[in-house]
Design a binder for these strands. Sequence first.
DNA 1: GACATGTGCAACAAAAGAGTTGCAGATCAT
DNA 2: ATGATCTGCAACTCTTTTGTTGCACATGTC
Lengths: 109, 109
Amino acid sequence: MSNKAEQELAGVFAALGDATRLALVTRLLAAGALSATALAEGQAISRQAIVKHLQVLEAARLVVHERQGREVLYSLDAQQVDAARAFLDAISTGWDRALARLRTLVEPD
Amino acid sequence: MSNKAEQELAGVFAALGDATRLALVTRLLAAGALSATALAEGQAISRQAIVKHLQVLEAARLVVHERQGREVLYSLDAQQVDAARAFLDAISTGWDRALARLRTLVEPD
DNA sequence: GACATGTGCAACAAAAGAGTTGCAGATCAT
DNA sequence: ATGATCTGCAACTCTTTTGTTGCACATGTC
């Protein structure tokens, strides 16, 4: 795996590695497209904090934004998700082989 | 999704959200089980830094350790990987199917 | 026992992350 | 044009993360 791709993948995971952002992702998944103000409504944290989180998600290319009048609507972009999925698949599917390797080390012959 | 599960999931993603740790995961996947000293060999960062990264991975239950003589061997634990995979599947395949899939995981049969 | 090797603990510094507040600018309705 | 919203920028804390170094303890080898 190239270093650049690895860095990008780490960025995707890091973006998802926060409960607030994870919640944002699920809300965007359910609602389709929302503004930062709408996302901040009724939340414990400020709109600006939400905006920063959205920017993190966007930097990881998990989210895109689109201007609509005076609002800015954020929505999910599943493209990078697939790369992350592929990585986790690799771990899961490689797991059996890893176990087999361990077995041969522990129980030689 | 319960808040606790969400927190735990965020922890898994956060643990993977670092290029150094991602590299450790791939090395452990390839090699099976290695000590912190072995993992630090030839790396730019110190053994102690590696140990800290391994502790982060272990806190997220992506890694387990086992004492073997004077060495401590670290290896992958795929259990939490599946939860993360399920979440990414949810994003990719869409919310409705994702909910159904999660239900089958939580209420098997 | 003496020595090499591997681990564990703790204190420290630098950097990044998360959140706040205040205010200015843009946009829409009346 | 006025007022109500919504967004954007910047400065400022506070906390967490990342990494280092130094030293002590444990374990295997000779």
